[in-house]
Write a protein that binds this DNA or RNA. Sequence first.
DNA 1: ACAAGGATTACCT
DNA 2: GGTAATCCTTGTT
Length: 208
Amino acid sequence: MESALDRKTFLNPTIEVARQLLGQCVVRRFEDGAICIGRIVETEAYTVGDPACHAFRGISKANAAMFGPPGHAYIHINYGLHYCLNAVTQAEGIPEAVLIRAIEPLENAALMYRNYTGDIVSEDIARQEKRIGAGPGRLTKALQIDKHFDGVDLTDSESPLFLISGATVSDNEVTTTTRIGITKAADYPWRFYATASPFVSRRAIRVK
DNA sequence: ACAAGGATTACCT
DNA sequence: GGTAATCCTTGTT
């Protein structure tokens, strides 16, 4: 297994990190040793002073992970039923994060498919399903990520969930737009996605 | 204690 | 294109 991303990566300005994480890979190791890998194709930045950031009104039990050290996971539950995966950025005490909104399966698409739908299909068939991982709630279900992963170190290749480097996405392959599904600071252009990826979330595409 | 709403998705027409 | 599902967090009584 390749080595995990360096913690220093997450000390760069959060908006740059959101852009830089495109093309990097999420690795999920299950207890039985099975591994799933997905390539990040859509992200959003949330920062200090940003009214849409969950930490805007200070620390709470739910958002404490965002105040923790960089390179760790912040998991929040959304609409009461969907888990969303964030990578915490900035030094401890500065609550910023990048929401990972979509991934495309690179390895073991069949297991992601099974986690998501309950059905067992071949790797080839699973790869043809372009929606597995195509949304913040979808990718966490496909990788079986829940509240227990809040605070996990994403820069430790021993973790059940961590990040590794992947194929670079150049600037001309990236679209930048406003963020999705928020009402506050809805005009900040802090969403980034790999323009050509069929796995970018459906709502995201609709926004343009 | 209680009510309101949310960084979404699936299913209906 | 519209809306129900579903439940935790937060702000208010």
